[in-house]
Design a protein around this nucleic acid. Sequence first.
DNA 1: TTGACAAGAACAAGCGCTTGTTCAAGGATT
DNA 2: AATCCTTGAACAAGCGCTTGTTCTTGTCAA
Lengths: 360, 360
Amino acid sequence: MPGLLGEYDLRVTARARAASLRPAVTLADVAREAGVDQSTVSRVLRDDHRARATDETRARIRETADRLGYVPNASARSLAVRKTSTIGLLIPNVSGVIYADVIKGAADAASALGYVLVVADGSELGRANDAVRKLVLEGRVDGLLLASGTLTDQVTDDLLGSTGNVVVLNRQIAGKVPQVIEDDEYGMYLGTRELVDAGHRRIACLAGPPDVDTSRRRVKGYKRAMREAGLTVTAGLVVHHDFDEASGYAGMLALLGQQPQPTAVAAASLAAAVGAMAAARDQGIVIPDDLSMVAFHDAPLANYLCPPLTTIAMPLEELGRQAMQMLHRRLVGEPGPAAVTVSDPSPIVVRRRSVGPPPG
Amino acid sequence: MPGLLGEYDLRVTARARAASLRPAVTLADVAREAGVDQSTVSRVLRDDHRARATDETRARIRETADRLGYVPNASARSLAVRKTSTIGLLIPNVSGVIYADVIKGAADAASALGYVLVVADGSELGRANDAVRKLVLEGRVDGLLLASGTLTDQVTDDLLGSTGNVVVLNRQIAGKVPQVIEDDEYGMYLGTRELVDAGHRRIACLAGPPDVDTSRRRVKGYKRAMREAGLTVTAGLVVHHDFDEASGYAGMLALLGQQPQPTAVAAASLAAAVGAMAAARDQGIVIPDDLSMVAFHDAPLANYLCPPLTTIAMPLEELGRQAMQMLHRRLVGEPGPAAVTVSDPSPIVVRRRSVGPPPG
DNA sequence: TTGACAAGAACAAGCGCTTGTTCAAGGATT
DNA sequence: AATCCTTGAACAAGCGCTTGTTCTTGTCAA
């Protein structure tokens, strides 16, 4: 990503080019040129089943539209049909390693369903509010995918009450808010088991904020694995911080302050794990010799850490896809569950080199 | 970033909430309720200078609109005024570490200028084309910010010919395509100097693809620094790969195959540097003792690498901001340069721990 | 008193599209 | 030969907004 890079093929065809010589060519233009009525052009071009036209007329219309470079105007169409066929995806921090997959899944599903997906940056408070107002309320999008773990119940209720076309990603809320969640509990269970199986007994948990749903679910998974292994979670063994590098760094320092020190830590996020690894290193602790580590969520980056980090790969692309599908169902009024847990593909642990036997 | 996290305050006010009880309340509704004409409501609510209304009427209109929860419909408005006041930002891979800043800058400028910014994922070829068609051609956005280093001239010409409302980020193209670029040459020069100043003489360059504009400019900066220091760039000292971790890994391996080995490498991208560091480590080479390293572009991640990586911080936020501003100028027909180089703030090197004296 | 001129506000057309309805012109059916 | 579909296509209204124009007052100068 570094280099403002990417490989596009944006060659635009001659017709598209002609299309936007001002002023844009309209349906009426095509109709006039083809010698038919506007409505006929509209129906033919959309393959409307009510299009009654001879093959000859159809051909002439299409040819004319093509020649003139007709491109339908989205605003006019939206106004007429009262929907925009575009969906917004609101993301707290667009550059989160994790979101690439979510976006991909959502975008795939969106285009399969005939929507265009736009993502909005909700990294700042004002920005997120703005986005909701400008996008949803003003009708720029038909619905919104909300990726966030820290919505308060109050907030989501309001949002839903006010729009009814929002699906929340990975936030589990009692009640009727449409949601698609990943099995954080199981994922974290898996990660912790990995540590247990390697022989660790003093396993710490580098958790996210205690008031964040996803964070709590991950801690739950950690605890379940511990309990199953007959291990007790003593005070201080789980520390709560944010889901970012700096917090991971601080959290690891806290963990390392314990006596006796944990021999392994399960981090609830990749970014926190990155910070944590740096902290360990700074304390002269070497992974995996002195300390083992797994992190929740996978990304290419994990491969290049020092050492390569064992992670739990969650089905994030599927999360995005299913969220989009659920939103679509709701928009067209199809029945369907208002809450689903993505379980296929199942979370898997990606073994790299950060897990070893306990020292000593 | 881990936890699908973010802190929103999406509390929607009562009026917004009321706004979307179907059907949405329209200007006509407000007019009827307030006992005035629709046009008056429209003008008053927009503070149109042609609004002739007593303060009393104004107050009544505003009160009514508020009470009814009126929110203007973007499609209708766009259709009427023939612009959408939304701008698209097309990004090759939305989750690139680097793009967070660009997006922030562009988003700031956008909202200051009264636009809403949506970002589209152009990670895949088809997706990018689709985005251009759906967004620009169909008039969902007024203009497009194109972040990419690998557009061919042909392609951009077409794009511009077909729309005229596109600004390219950091791609330097002869001709009239509107562009705002960062001073890659100088940035890379700075980074290489850092290595030179530390005493290195065999300095390699881990470059991007040779046919990518930004990559070439970075190599140029590297070469200038070398030349100035009286150092020769022997064959094999600059290797070309992609701007990602895997490529950086491969590139570093190639570099390490040289005899004599370089004692320092200037990487043209952060991601490549991450891969390169992993490669060095795998070869038993320790940074900075055996090998020094700097990378082009900065991000929080660099702080947490092993060791923390010295980088060149480029003014990416400003890049985004200025691109947005240029696009705006073009949209409103203001004159202004069609190409600017962002030079303020100037690139700076962020010293961390990956640079040391040459070994031996 | 008349007219001119504001101010305040209503009228009306139109942006580019969709869609329910009507119309005309053949066949097919009686 | 009259009736009835059916097919092919035109008509027309309307989506929610903006904006140029017109209408109606009240006020003030002449």
